[in-house]
Design a protein around this nucleic acid. Structure first.
Lengths: 340, 340
DNA sequence: TTGTAGGCGTTATCAG
DNA sequence: CTGATAACGCCTACAA
């Protein structure tokens, strides 16, 4: 069932059908109605591939997500999707995991753009630092990177970025813990190969420690795999091996919750005998017991800024930008003062 | 940069390039290498739309999700994606929310299939009971519905289904609570218009109450909007208005957690002075404090069954089926006996 | 206001 | 083994 069939059935030419389909004004009402009727009767749906193939301004914005199952991304995605629809574009979501390819996110990005004929892209997460400039240059549409590592050499000729200062956020978080009297401060990162975000945050952690002349203990730096289970296991091992630890700074709320369970299982009351600090500001933290103290990333704002910026870029009203947003410490119940 | 350019640059015909692209064996090694080199040099990526337009067995399986942000679906999705890749297909994810259309999921489904030229579809959630048989009949590819309401008139001529018995699960859950000595049992549903799952579960709840001659109190049936915040508000209102309630059965773990917060805020210790029962068996429940007693849906199994069934269907080795899987009560710490 | 025809980038068929 | 060429379904000049 294609446009030709519809044309035949309605007794008109294909272009008329096409015009009806695309809401062109220059079709007589009768003709339009007749065609519409046939379309409905046949449950005809135009073939998208052919459409895209033909015209190349389909008002599609691509969203490339690394690890869609990260709840922080999910929350941002909701806002991004709404935003894209609001400005009259269609969102095309594509997600990938690192293991599904040779860590070459640049290739994924380029394929995505070419395949889908996108007018712009937002990348959520991922590590594009290894992509050669040359490759970026060949991309002719605007790109906005968000939630990527902020230390990456930024070239606003090539792309825009909306992010937080990961190092600073972790630095301030650690400082906060130190000022609460803690000295044995452990940090839980994502995974070893996550060159981006984890790396920046551990730098901030170390800097704060340094500033207060607290020696850095390698044993206090552990990996939690960005999920409940590995975080739980990792925390259990950590706290058993180093019982002097009084606070754990987990680099994501999910890991914090996993680690919190390990703490209770080990007999500690979180927020009283041991402290726990998260990162992200997920909704769940508010409803967790004890309510999770955490570093909030301005997810909503980041999402909105991405859309706003991208539209400006697509309409060529604006040059590439590097937007850095502020994080915020949300004090709830999971961090207490160290009572020496 | 298209296949023609590559052909010209490599000094071969388009068909040869196409053959290289598709790993056809009948190309001389030298030729292949030369073409490959040019492709790499030009960073050429074939146009997917054209590809799809042309051939119509692209080994694409569509996954149509209602509310991708439901964590239970996220967990299933992980497994589905892996499964689809394992059998050599590509997953195309499409999600929608009810508000984005006139509640007409059938149309979404049909458009999705036609646009993407799918070989099979898995629908996660949604309500397809209103879709006319006629429309289903016009679909020529296998469809597997999962996590949909199980009371829907099933026609295995038209589609397959993998689900749980929602009514029975809720019945048994309620019975469990009654046998724990509870009499004032409240239930929190998703939303009023969710004709499917919520509806079936409340039926099970009422049936159990009936069986034990416990009167049904309309005030005990509330809506929690499937999210923390509304569940929290709703629970707070409920427990303030009806303080005699000793247990709340929330129809999703997320709502249970939201409601749990309301309970603590009201001064109750969950699992001691008041009980809380969830539904889904999300990972988070295990790490929640107190560990959440819940009805586990066999998400992994459901996902795997969907894939297995769909492959059989696509390869025409099997007829449509209606698979009903067992739920399981996971007793943790959030439900206690009623001490009259 | 409507119809005809060419082309978008691929793949498949069929000669060579 | 390789190359021309005809589809695939749609959109859009251009012509009527």
């Amino acid at each position: 069932m294609n446009i030709k069939d519809i044309a035949k059935l309605s007794g008109v030419g294909v272009s008329t059908v096409s015009r009806v389909l695309n809401n062109h004004p220059d079709v007589k009402k009768e003709t339009r109605d007749k065609v519409l009727e046939v379309i409905k009767e046949c449950n005809y749906v135009p073939n998208n591939s052919a459409r895209i193939l033909k015209s190349n301004n389909m008002k599609h914005i691509g969203v490339l997500v690394k690890g869609i199952f990260n709840p922080f991304f999910s929350e941002m995605l909701k806002i991004i999707e709404t935003g894209i629809n609001d400005i009259g574009y269609t969102m095309i979501l594509h997600h990938y995991d690192t293991n599904s390819l040779g860590g070459n996110e640049g290739e994924v990005l380029i394929s995505f753009i070419k395949e889908k004929r996108l007018q712009g892209v937002i990348c959520l997460g991922g590590n594009f630092s290894k992509i050669e400039e040359e490759r970026f240059e060949e991309i002719e549409i605007p790109i906005v990177l968000t939630s990527v590592d902020s230390h990456m050499k930024i070239n606003t000729k090539l792309f825009s970025r909306v992010c937080i200062d990961n190092k600073k956020a972790a630095y301030e978080a650690t400082k906060y813990l130190i000022e609460k009297g803690h000295e044995h401060i452990a940090i839980m990162l994502g995974d070893e190969f996550d060159a981006g975000v984890s790396n920046r945050r551990v730098m901030g952690y170390m800097e704060a420690l340094d500033e207060y002349h607290i020696p850095i203990n390698k044993d206090y730096i552990v990996m939690g795999g960005y999920d409940f289970e590995p975080a739980y296991e990792s925390a259990k091992k950590l706290l058993t091996a180093s019982p002097e630890i009084t606070v754990l700074f987990a680099i994501s709320d999910i890991m914090a919750i996993g680690a919190g369970k390990a703490m209770s299982d080990l007999g500690f009351t979180v927020g009283k005998e041991i402290s726990l600090l998260g990162f992200d500001g997920l909704n769940i933290g508010k409803y967790y017991t004890p309510a999770l103290t955490t570093i909030e990333q301005p997810g909503k704002q980041m999402a909105e800024d991405c859309i706003d910026l991208l539209v400006q870029l697509i309409e060529e009203k604006e040059a590439n930008q590097n937007i850095i947003l502020e994080t915020r410490l949300i004090e709830r119940k999971s961090v207490c003062n160290f009572k020496g």
